[in-house]
Design a protein around this nucleic acid. Structure first.
Length: 510
RNA sequence: ACCCUCGUAGCUCAAUUGGAUAGAGCAACGGCCUUCUAAGCCGUAGGUUGGGCGUUCGAGUCGCCCCGAGGGUGCCA
């Protein structure tokens, strides 16, 4: 993990500030580069002298307006490959640590999950996997809003069906509602209908999510929070801090003091808690259980974040706890060149289940992670099903299968590769070696920016680097066969690890 | 009306968060299989980064003003 070591040393030299380690452009020689001297006003020559003291480094030089380009020794690069081969499943594991609660999806138990929820699940779960890999303790939690107006409507909708009445004005009318109602005892009242139906819908959500390879550690019910008196407790807590006031018969929280554009109601004038009130209680509970909280939200919730973050600060959690809200833009489904919008307003959904059934979990997860979360995503269903290089999932998986195939041809089991053979690697391998060795840095960037798409991007680039190498160099039967097998073993494991982190399988044959 | 997120090649997107000559894939055109999987590789072409002004050694990235797209502005969740 020479990149991480060099970066950490640079951070020390810069006075424990965040330092970026770059790869120089193709036309400029060097293995690594940094702009640390320019950014922090350090003397480049002094920095160069310090860098050159490191064992792993051959030389360093100041270039252009003050970039420092770094050359690694061949031994450093080759040793990295040898180390990966020694323990392929451990590469970059445990290099950080912490304790994080992830909340993701948390869709109301009133209707099916659609493809947008899939994006949230894919982002949250991939990040959770990465944090775990790096050594964090992670909990995945689903918050269940089993109370309030939407639940009432669900209950009424079902109650009306089993009693032969028309659905309420704003009620739920989908076929799934009729299917659920069909099994219900007509003696149930609306509240019982809501409860039973929501449990059925929630079970279905977890079944679909499991098929999507997202497994939760816990469910957290809003009604439990209320029953345990946590909402009152939180409101009292805020009252005592002098952060609330009465107006128009309701109780308000002064969120504007902390950056919100208007104050928010905690208790309605009819005495009921708002959704926001229980969410405050929920987040207080989260803060008590974990050091760090990451929430994954659809873009349609972004107007809500200011008030939640205002609460977080008002309650005093901001000082020693971290709240991170990751927002993702909506998903459009593309079929035969036509875009189908998934916005809630259109009311026209394609369910997550349908997409999984059509393209498979591998393609669905990879596609939903290919884009930066703050740009809308066009999900091309037909492309996801194609079996050629146009389809990025196949392209990456194919590189893994191809490597397995080379091992078969060589008559060597991947586990039997000699790590020390990597010492023979040379110039032809340089690019691919550096690509492989970039994996820990990419992971650390993904979690630093909560941006899992950097990993799918990296996997595509690594696959490309391998395919190019494969095409120019003969492995089996060459003089450097043993060394090259070590290298492609390292490539194989990085691709496998990376795919595992995004939740996609790495087949040995295709 | 206000707030948020965006606008990069014909299309879908990157660009290591202010760095070096803005990169990939698809689509178009031309090449490469008696050789480890051609589900692959190589080459050609394609750009005033929506427009303008600014900030500085340096701007796709930061600030302000326009234009355009999407989302949000409940005592709903």
């Amino acid at each position: 993990m020479y990149e991480i070591k060099v970066r950490d040393r640079l951070m020390e030299l810069a006075g424990n500030k965040d330092v970026r380690l770059d790869t120089p452009p193709d036309n400029i020689p060097g293995d690594l580069s940094t702009n640390a001297a320019m950014v922090y006003g350090l003397k480049p020559q002094e920095l160069v002298a310090e860098i050159e003291k490191m064992d792993s480094i051959e030389s360093a030089a100041v270039v252009g307006p003050g970039f420092i380009n770094i050359f690694l020794t061949d031994e450093t690069k080759n040793r990295e490959i040898g180390e990966i081969v020694k323990a392929p499943g451990d590469y970059a594991k445990g290099i950080a640590g912490g304790d994080i609660l992830f909340e993701m999806v948390s869709s109301n138990p009133t209707g099916p999950l659609h493809i947008g929820h899939g994006r949230g699940a894919a982002i949250g779960d991939a990040l959770a996997r990465m944090y775990e890999w790096l050594g964090y303790k992670v909990r995945r939690e689903y918050y269940v809003n089993d109370r309030g107006r939407q639940m009432d409507l669900l209950g009424e909708s079902i109650f009306n069906i089993i009693n032969g009445k028309a659905a309420p004005e704003q009620g739920y009318k989908g076929d799934y509602i009729k299917d659920i109602a069909a099994g219900f005892d007509p003696a149930l009242n609306a509240e019982e209908c809501a409860h039973k139906a929501s449990e059925i819908i929630l079970d279905t959500h977890f079944k679909v999510l499991k098929e999507f390879r997202v497994e939760y550690d816990s469910k957290f019910y809003e009604t439990d929070l209320i029953r345990a008196g946590k909402v009152e407790e939180t409101i009292d807590f805020l009252k005592k801090k002098g952060l609330t006031y009465k107006k128009d018969g309701a109780l308000w929280l002064k969120t504007t003091t902390y950056g919100d554009d208007r104050d928010r109601v905690l208790v309605k004038k009819n005495g009921e808690f708002t959704y926001f009130a229980s969410d405050c209680a929920y987040h207080k509970d989260k803060a008590q259980r974990h050091k760090e909280v990451i929430n994954i939200w659809g873009a349609d919730h972004h107007g809500y974040l200011d008030r939640l973050e205002a609460f977080w600060e008002a309650a005093g959690f901001k000082e020693n706890k971290r709240l991170n809200d990751v927002l993702y833009q909506l998903v459009n489904l593309k079929r035969a060149g036509e875009l189908i919008s998934m916005s809630t307003r259109e009311g026209e959904f394609v369910t997550l289940k349908e997409v999984i059934d059509e393209v498979g979990t591998d393609a669905a997860r990879f596609f939903l992670l290919m884009r930066n979360s703050d740009t809308p995503l066009d999900f091309d269903v037909e492309l996801a099903k194609e079996e050629n290089k146009r389809n990025p999932v196949y392209y990456v998986q194919y590189s893994h299968a191809r490597i397995s195939s080379v091992f078969k041809k060589a008559g060597v089991k991947p586990g039997e590769v000699d790590p020390s053979a990597a010492r023979q690697l040379g110039k032809e391998e340089d690019r691919l070696i550096k690509m492989v060795a970039h994996f820990p840095y990419i992971l650390s960037k993904c979690v630093q920016l909560n941006a899992p798409h950097l990993l799918t991007e990296y996997l595509r680039d690594t696959a490309t680097a391998f395919h190019k190498y494969y095409d120019t160099v003969k492995i089996v039967g060459s003089r450097k066969e043993r060394a090259r097998l070590a290298l492609i073993m390292a490539v194989k494991s990085v691709i496998k690890n990376g795919l595992e982190l995004v939740g996609v399988s790495a087949p040995d044959r295709m």
